[in-house]
Computed example of a mutant assay.
Amino acid sequence: MLNKEDYEEPRCVLCMNPKSRIPVDRVLEKYDSYIEDKEYERAESHIRYWLEEAKVGGDEAGELTMLSELMGHLRKNGIIDEAVSVASSTIAKVDKFGFSDTITGATAILNAGTVYRAAGKNADSAACYEKAEKVYEKELDEKDDRLGGLYNNFASALTELGEYEKAEEKYLKALKIMDGTKNGKLECAITYLNLADLYEKRDGSEKAESHIDEMLEKAYNLLTDDSVEKNAYYEFVLDKCIPAYDHFGQFIRSAELKSRIGIK
Rank of each mutant, 00 (worst) to 15 (best):
I103H: 03
A167W: 04
V94M: 05
G262N: 10
L223W: 03
E163W: 10
D81S: 11
I91A: 05
I79P: 00
E133Y: 09
E60L: 09
L257S: 03
V84H: 00
K30E: 11
E206F: 08
R202H: 09
D213Q: 12
M215G: 01
F236S: 08
N183M: 07
L172W: 01
A219S: 15
L175W: 03
K4P: 09
V228N: 00
L238D: 11
S156I: 06
K4F: 14
E214M: 12
V115D: 00
G113F: 09
L70F: 04
A244I: 06
V135H: 01
A255Q: 13
T159K: 13
V135I: 09
K170A: 07
E139H: 12
E41P: 00
G262R: 12
F99D: 02
D213W: 01
A108C: 08
E168M: 00
E165Q: 14
L195F: 13
Y7E: 08
V56R: 14
I79A: 00
V13E: 14
L74M: 02
R11C: 12
H46T: 06
Y31T: 13
S205D: 10
Y136A: 06
K76M: 12
D239H: 02
K96F: 13
G180Q: 05
E160M: 09
A132I: 00
H46Q: 07
T224G: 05
L186W: 00
L216D: 04
I109D: 03
N194Y: 07
D145M: 13
R117S: 15
Y233V: 05
L150V: 03
K258D: 13
E235L: 01
L28S: 08
L64A: 04
F236V: 02
M215C: 15
R146W: 09
K173F: 04
L158R: 10
V228T: 06
E41W: 04
A196P: 00
E69A: 13
L70A: 02
K76I: 03
A196F: 06
A132C: 00
N153I: 12
T114Q: 06
L2V: 09
C15K: 15
A87N: 04
D213F: 03
K138P: 05
C12H: 03
T90L: 05
K76V: 11
D59S: 10
K240W: 05
E214N: 14
F251R: 14
E142K: 14
C188V: 08
L150S: 02
L223Q: 02
K170L: 14
Y234C: 03
R260L: 15
Y164E: 00
G149C: 10
Y233A: 09
R48V: 08
N183D: 15
R253P: 04
L238E: 08
A123T: 15
Y129W: 08
A174H: 05
A155D: 12
E214W: 10
K166N: 11
R146L: 07
I261A: 12
Y171L: 04
Y164M: 00
S89K: 15
E52V: 08
Y151R: 12
A119N: 04
N17P: 02
G113R: 01
R260K: 14
T159M: 13
K176M: 07
M71W: 00
K76R: 15
A112K: 07
